[in-house]
C-alpha cells in the first residue's frame, strides 16, 4: 500500500525513484526496493522509531565510549567516593569514587557485546537445527525436536546458572550459558517455517535441478525463515539483556571492576539507603535499553511478519 502512496504522487527521480520503481533491473535493486518500502511502513510507527533511536543511541555510546566518558570507568578518586549527582559527576560516584556516568557509558559496550554475541551464536544454531529437522522430517525431526524440548523444559535462568557453575563465572561464560539456553525457541520457529515451505513448488523445482540437500537448506529454505527469526531475536534481546544483568547481579556474569550494569547494581546494593543513586541509575539504563529493544521488535514484527501481529 505504501507503494501506491509513493508512486501515485508523482514519478520520483533519483535514488527514491530507483528504489520505488515498478521495474527493477537487478536483484539487488529489487531487494533494496523492498527494504525501502519496509522502512516507509516502519517509519510510520512512532513507538518503533523511539525504540530504534534508543538502540542506535546505545550503539553510538558503546562505539564512542572513550570520547563520551568524562572519567576513567575503572579507576576512581577515593576522596570523591559516594558523592551525589553534581555538575562534575552527573550521576554521582560509587563507593570507589568512580564516576557512575562514565561506568554507564562503558557498560553500554558490555551490554551490546552480550546481546550481539548471544544473537550471533543462538540464532544460527536454532536456525540450523530447525531447518534440518523440518526439511528431513522422520527420525531426524523426532530426535532434534526432542532435544529442543528438553532444553525448553528447563527453566532458562536455572539452566544458565548451572552452565555458569560448570564453566566458572565471567562475561564470556555468561554469554555462552545464555546462548546455550536461548536457541530452542528459534529452532521451533525455524522448523515451523520450514514445514510450510518444504512442499512448495519452487523447492521441488530446485530439487529436480539436482540441488544437494545442504544447498537447498541453506540457499532456499533458510532465507524463508530469516524474517520471522529476526523479529523473534529482536524481541528476545530485552530478555537477554535482563538475563545477563541478572547473572551479573548474582556475581556470576561480568566480574568487578568491569562496569557491567547488573554488577553495578549489585555493588550499589549496600549503599541503597543513603546513596540510592549507585544502585538505581544502572537499573534505569537497563530498563531504557530493554524497552528500546522491545519497541523495536514490536515495530519490526508489524513490518516483517504481519501475520504474527500479537496485539490482534
Amino acid at each position: 500500500m505504501s507503494k501506491t502512496d509513493v508512486i501515485g504522487s508523482a514519478a520520483p527521480q533519483g535514488l527514491r525513484g530507483w528504489l520505488s520503481t515498478d521495474t527493477p533491473h537487478s536483484r539487488f535493486q529489487a531487494r533494496m526496493g523492498r527494504l525501502w518500502f519496509g522502512w516507509l511502513t516502519f517509519r510510520r510507527n512512532r513507538l518503533a522509531m523511539l525504540g530504534l533511536s534508543i538502540v542506535l543511541l546505545l550503539c553510538a555510546v558503546a562505539l564512542f565510549a572513550p570520547l563520551l566518558a568524562p572519567y576513567n570507568p575503572v579507576q576512581g578518586v577515593l576522596n570523591d567516593r559516594l558523592q551525589a549527582g553534581s555538575a562534575a559527576h552527573w550521576f554521582g560516584t560509587d563507593n570507589m569514587g568512580r564516576d557512575i556516568l562514565s561506568r554507564l557509558v562503558y557498560g553500554a559496550r558490555y551490554t551490546l557485546l552480550v546481546v550481539v554475541l548471544v544473537a550471533v551464536t543462538a540464532a544460527p544454531i536454532g536456525l540450523l537445527v530447525g531447518t534440518v529437522a523440518g526439511y528431513f522430517g522422520g527420525w531426524v525431526d523426532t530426535v532434534l525436536m526432542r532435544v529442543t524440548d528438553i532444553f525448553l523444559a528447563f527453566p532458562k535462568l536455572i539452566l544458565a546458572l548451572a552452565f555458569v557453575a560448570a564453566l566458572g563465572p565471567g562475561l564470556e561464560n555468561a554469554v555462552l550459558a545464555i546462548a546455550l539456553t536461548s536457541w530452542p525457541p528459534y529452532a521451533r520457529l525455524a522448523r515451523a517455517e520450514t514445514l510450510t515451505v518444504r512442499t512448495a513448488d519452487y523447492i521441488a523445482a530446485a530439487r529436480l535441478q539436482g540441488l544437494s540437500h545442504p544447498r537447498l537448506i541453506v540457499g532456499h529454505i533458510m532465507p524463508m525463515c530469516t524474517s520471522s527469526l529476526i523479529v523473534r531475536v529482536t524481541l528476545d534481546m530485552a530478555g537477554i539483556i535482563l538475563t545477563a544483568a541478572g547473572l551479573g547481579f548474582l556475581g556470576l556474569g561480568a566480574q568487578p571492576p568491569l562496569p557491567e550494569w547488573g554488577a553495578m547494581i549489585s555493588e550499589g546494593r549496600q549503599f541503597l539507603l543513603n546513596q540510592w543513586w549507585v544502585a538505581t541509575v544502572p537499573g534505569l539504563a537497563i530498563f531504557i535499553v530493554s524497552l528500546g529493544f522491545n519497541l523495536l521488535g514490536d515495530g519490526l514484527r508489524d513490518v516483517l511478519d504481519p501475520r504474527a501481529g500479537g496485539n490482534g
Binding site: F249, F287, N294
Partner: peptide
Amino acid sequence: VRVLGLFGYSLPVFWLGLVGLLLFYM
C-alpha cells in the same frame, strides 16, 4: 495494559525489588 506489559518485559526484577525495598521499607 499495553504499557504495563511493556514495562513488565523491560524492567529488571532485581532492580525493581531494590527500589521497592528502598521506597516502601526503608
